[in-house]
Design a protein around this nucleic acid. Structure first.
Lengths: 193, 193
DNA sequence: GTAATATATGGAGGGCCCCGCCACTTATGC
DNA sequence: GCATAAGTGGCGGGGCCCTCCATATATTAC
């Protein structure tokens, strides 16, 4: 028999659809009970399909993240390594800043320690997607060797978190990304002895 | 008569002391009821002295922020404008990354819009303290003119938020600050057309 | 010292949320 | 159709935040 019953699958889809709207409206700490109510199911059913808020958030953002990873694949073909990386970082920033709750979800994940091993997590996919772009840019001399993928993702996640309340969050986030790329005060190479 | 009764003042102090420990232990979303319980007062008393979690967090971090602002005053005397700014940014980063909840409190405040007018807020004090350092560095040509004080504070707040779960949060945050100061890829001045 | 008064307090109650349990329903394979 | 296992949802427990109000207490005036 199929691994999952048909009605269960239907409920899963419905809950996920409602969750997307609810998270978009109320951020990462949307009420699970409210989601259950709107979806017309019991709260236990939500918990069954998504054990814990993290699982739900992961599912909510999975598609968007997949799109982002695909974009990274395309950009690997672009000639200018630096431009490709910056383009992707910009796209990621735009997503993270506009999709409410995504940054929070990423921050609470194991985004920070890249060798976590949990390769099914969203952050792991992002790391895997961004890695080649970064390494190529580093080989081209556009980025210092000491910079890790997780550094970039952490910075952007932080920007998204800190600008979440801004009226025009996406624009502000992209502006700050530009600042980070260019450097606040890059004049001296070895900053702070 | 005095503006406040003596026992009220005592309770205020006690609640604040407990709140400091509790916030240090559980971050910005520590339980207000737990604080009340530990302090041996009713939860209503906590709410009376600190209407809303924000007010409590502000009080918790007030001293630390004052110290930070004082440090900015000292650094205004340092000859090297760039070094002075970077030193202060480093100090702020260390504080924000080590004091659990502080970054969250700042992010939820009106940190992002500098012309809010609420000059009693913590973020306003920080902006006022950092402003002279930044302007001096900009006059010295060490920082681009378009950079605002709130940009720097927002970036650092974001770094602190994104590194909160890191095993060695303070070190990681300072490392990322270094990256932001130096720039991820500063080679071309006008990033992304 | 005592009475009068404004001030401060904390416990009860309501609302919301997360979580786990268990009897009931329902799709599925024979 | 029927047996069965998968799926469901309501219920109760625990916690938190918030408000209200009767009570207790520091303070002031006499």
């Amino acid at each position: 028999m199929s691994a999952q019953r048909a009605d269960a699958r239907r409920n899963y889809e419905r809950i996920l659809a409602v969750a997307m709207e609810e998270v978009a409206a109320h951020g990462a700490d949307a009420s699970l009970e409210q989601i259950a109510r709107t979806a017309g199911v019991g709260s236990a059913t939500v918990r069954r399909h998504f054990p814990g808020r993290r699982a739900l958030l992961e599912a909510v953002f999975r598609e968007r993240i997949a799109t982002l990873c695909a974009r990274a694949g395309e950009l690997a073909e672009v000639a200018d390594a630096r431009a490709a990386l910056l383009e992707w970082l910009g796209a990621f920033t735009a997503y993270a800043a506009s999709a409410r709750g995504m940054a929070a979800a990423l921050a609470q994940e194991g985004l920070l320690d890249p060798e976590d091993g949990g390769d099914n997590a969203c952050s792991a996919q992002l790391i895997q997607a961004c890695g080649p772009l970064l390494r190529r840019a580093q080989r081209a001399g556009a980025v210092a060797p000491g910079v890790a993928v997780s550094d970039l993702l952490t910075l952007i996640t932080g920007i998204a978190l800190a600008t979440e309340r801004h009226p025009d969050a996406a624009a502000e986030a992209e502006r700050l990304l530009g600042l980070v790329v260019a450097g606040v005060s890059p004049s001296v190479v070895t900053a702070r002895g």
